[in-house]
């Protein structure tokens, strides 16, 4: 049993989660940054004699993590994998399950609470990309890093998931508190579960 209008809100949250999932998937696999190497006054020579070195390199979040692991930075790679790929995906899954619980008038459980409060860590890789951008901008030789649309999609996904998390928490506070304990076990709201 939920408050009138809660059904509409739950569907809005679900739509938010679906969009966030689509953005997350495309943000993880889409182009995240392009590194265009430059070699200062030797730029022409390097481009002429070793063109492979001067070719721009494109990275996605997943590709970047793979490159880190391949180059021996396993700890950093696993950390980024956990907070950029696994955690945001699980968080969305937990939130989607939570909407199902809310539609039935049940509490969302401790996992939802945990994922909502740990949500801020899922911006970790955007922070890392920002750091890399700053670091490479400071390098001599004029190397450049340009950010791809993958970063935007990923950031939008994180923001949407944060909004969905906040709305779910508010909904839970408002609705579950009003449900009698005997109803909380089995009743569902028509058309929501």
């Amino acid at each position: 049993m939920t408050r009138p209008g809660a059904g509409k809100t739950i569907w809005s949250v679900r739509a938010c989660i679906v969009v966030s999932a689509v953005l997350l998937g495309s943000g993880l696999a889409g182009p995240c940054m392009t590194i265009e190497p430059a070699f200062g006054s030797f730029d022409g020579w390097v481009r002429f004699l070793k063109p492979d070195l001067a070719r721009p390199t494109h990275y996605s979040v997943v590709g970047g993590i793979r490159a880190l692991i391949d180059h021996g930075h396993v700890a950093l790679g696993v950390l980024l994998l956990a907070f950029s790929v696994v955690f945001p995906t699980l968080k969305l899954a937990v939130m989607a399950a939570a909407t199902s619980s809310l539609a039935e008038g049940r509490p969302t459980g401790p996992l939802m609470w945990l994922s909502h409060h740990a949500g801020k860590f899922s911006m970790l890789d955007v922070f890392v990309v920002g750091l890399i951008t700053l670091a490479i901008k400071g390098l001599p030789g004029g190397s450049r890093v340009t950010l791809g649309w993958g970063v935007g999609a990923f950031a939008a996904s994180v923001v949407l998931s944060l909004i969905a998390g906040i709305v779910i928490q508010r909904l839970e506070r408002r609705t579950v508190a009003t449900i009698p304990p005997d109803v909380a076990d089995g009743n569902t709201v028509e058309g929501l579960a």
């Binding site: 679900r14 999932a21 997350l24 495309s26 696999a29 969305l92 989607a96």
Partner: peptide, 15 residues
């Protein structure tokens, strides 16, 4: 709902 969301992320990423 949970599995569907995970699948959606994976499918979009793969696509």
């Amino acid at each position: 709902w949970a599995a569907g969301t995970v699948l959606l992320v994976c499918a979009t990423g793969f696509a």
